[in-house]
Simulated assay, not measured.
Amino acid sequence: MTLSAAEATPSPAEEQGGGNGLLWVLVAVAVLFAFLRPRAPMEWLKLVDWQTVGALAGLLAITQGVEKSGMLQAAAQRLLARTHNQRSLAMLLTASAALLSALVTNDVSLFLLVPLTRVLATQAHLPLARLVVLEALAVNAGSALTPIGNPQNLYLWHRSGESFFAFMAMMGPTVAVMLFWLFVAVWLLVPRTPIALKPAAEAAPVQPRLLALAGVLFIGFVVALDRHWLLAGLGVVLGVFLVTYPRVLRGIDWALLAIIALMFVDLRQLAELPTITALLGYWPITEGWRAYLAAIVTSQFISNVPAAILLDSHVRDLPALAAGVSVGGFGCVLGSLANLIALRLAKLPNGMREFHRISIPFLLVCAASALLLRLA
Rank of each mutant, 00 (worst) to 15 (best):
G215I: 02
I276V: 15
G17W: 13
A295L: 04
F165Y: 11
N150T: 04
L225I: 08
P38I: 07
L321V: 04
V325T: 11
S336C: 06
V186K: 07
W229Q: 15
G65R: 10
P319E: 01
L36H: 07
G18V: 12
W283S: 00
A214M: 10
V305M: 06
V184F: 01
P151I: 05
V104Y: 05
L242Y: 12
F164K: 10
S11T: 15
V133D: 09
L337D: 00
A138K: 02
L293K: 03
A121Y: 03
F218M: 14
L279W: 15
L126C: 06
L234G: 13
S96K: 00
E43A: 14
R247Y: 05
Q86A: 15
P306C: 06
L145M: 13
I252T: 08
L112K: 03
S4I: 09
A196P: 09
D107H: 10
T83D: 02
L238N: 01
A322P: 03
W289D: 04
L321P: 06
R130I: 04
L92P: 01
L270W: 07
L363M: 09
F35H: 13
W187I: 00
S299P: 02
I252Q: 05
E202D: 10
L23H: 08
L3W: 15
F218W: 14
L22F: 14
F180G: 07
P199S: 13
P208V: 05
A224Y: 07
A201H: 14
L179V: 13
L364V: 06
V184I: 04
L120H: 00
A307S: 14
P194H: 07
T2L: 05
L279H: 13
N20V: 09
R344S: 12
I62K: 05
L197H: 12
L310V: 08
N153I: 03
F165W: 10
V248C: 01
S299M: 00
S143D: 01
E14M: 09
L79V: 00
A81S: 13
C332E: 04
A169N: 08
L373I: 06
N153S: 01
A97F: 00
S4V: 06
A81M: 08
H84Y: 14
P41W: 02
A342N: 13
L47M: 09
S336L: 01
H314E: 00
G21S: 12
G233M: 11
L36V: 09
T122F: 06
P151F: 06
V31L: 14
A90S: 15
A291R: 15
A212E: 06
L36N: 04
L225R: 12
A307P: 03
V248D: 02
W289S: 09
L93R: 00
V265W: 02
D266K: 04
D49W: 02
P205N: 03
A74I: 13
I259E: 14
V66Q: 04
Q152R: 12
L310Q: 12
A255W: 07
C366R: 05
A346M: 03
K68S: 09
G331R: 05
A57N: 03
M352S: 10
L267D: 02
S326L: 03
M178L: 14
P10V: 01
V53H: 09
L334G: 05
F164E: 06
E202S: 12
A176R: 01
